Simulated scan of single mutants.
Amino acid sequence: MVGVELLLDPRAGRTLLRADAVVLATGGAGQLYEFTTNPAGATGDGLAAAWRAGARVDDLEFYQFHPTALAVPGSFLVSEAVRGEGAVLLDAAGRRFLAGVDRRAELAPRDIVARGIADQMKRQAGLPVLLDATAIGRETLESRFPTITAATRAAGLDWAVDPIPVTPAAHYFMGGVSTDLLGRTSLPGLYAVGEVASTGVHGANRLASNSLLEAAVFGWRAIEAIGADELPDTESRGGETPDAVSGDGPVIRRSDLQRLMWDAAGVERSGARLALAAESLAAAGRPTADTVEALETANLLDVARLVVKGALAREESRGAHFRSDFPVPDEEFARALSWAREVPEHAHR
């Protein structure tokens, strides 16, 4: 079947929208994690739907964590440009600590800074670290970073006077639905663009702003491909794709899933923690209610299982994926890890 099942149409309930082609442009899945810079709707819906339909997915273990999100509800992103301007990171006692992690200190790559902060937070009982931008001066902060200044004020902070609390937060999903360079997925008639897609342009550690390439360039390419491709005959296709498997345990709460993923599949991973997380996720029951909250949480559960599966399989450290038990890259893994769900043949007839 080519089309989309609309589960929450306010007028008609569950309805089927047939189409010659479907383009997924549904964004990332930052809501997998306890801390994220992503909006509330970043729940992996398109990725989960494509996976259930049998589309191939790639590199789901690669999630980029931004090192400095404001440690208040909403996790507002504090750009690394602030550190480029001269801001420094301090521990709870007011001491700089990143020079002991990397010679580039605050200007090291995102993954190194994020891990350095996460490690320091463990040392201080989970308290956030502090970003000290006071030496930059109020005038420069307000003129160069007006949006961040407004966010700090909204949180009751004045970063021109005092250091502000920051923490790493899930920021960008580099893996996703596998596509070619025209946005085509492994399923005829299904295309994916933007953060939901895995185009390969990010490698294991996305460069800042490279997401604009994935959204803008591949969006246009997908449009051109749809016009040129021989699309499936929607009239001759039907049937239903079965839901993903539900565990026999209690229905998982989103907050519990997010905490589990943050602890086991966050900035730093280990085989032992990932294996325990895989067991817990396999046993978790899926929400079944036809509400936005329940449907999104069910999608997050599907994606969480895949992320943990990928992180367990990649027994090395590469880019944003860091395994404490395999701390160096392994040339055996200098490739994408791909997964596809077997879907009964009747579901595609």
Rank of each mutant, 00 (worst) to 15 (best):
H171W: 12
A99T: 08
P329F: 14
P287K: 09
G27I: 07
F326K: 10
G100N: 10
D20S: 10
A155C: 12
L260K: 09
G175E: 11
A313N: 07
D132H: 07
V303C: 01
D180C: 04
G247D: 03
R254M: 08
V308C: 11
D243I: 00
E342K: 02
L98R: 03
T179C: 12
L306A: 06
R335G: 09
W339R: 09
A81T: 14
G27N: 11
V328T: 13
E142D: 09
V196M: 12
P232K: 03
V129S: 09
A69M: 15
I164D: 11
L157V: 01
T241N: 01
A265Q: 08
L130F: 15
V343E: 07
E268Y: 01
L207P: 03
V129F: 09
L24Q: 00
T297L: 10
P163R: 08
A278K: 09
R144V: 04
Y63S: 04
L107V: 09
E85P: 02
G203P: 09
V129N: 09
S246N: 04
G27F: 01
R56I: 14
A169L: 12
G227F: 06
L157F: 08
P146T: 05
P242A: 03
S186C: 08
P329Y: 14
L107R: 15
D302E: 15
S186K: 07
G239V: 03
V343H: 08
D9L: 11
E296I: 04
T134L: 00
V308H: 12
G219Q: 09
R95S: 10
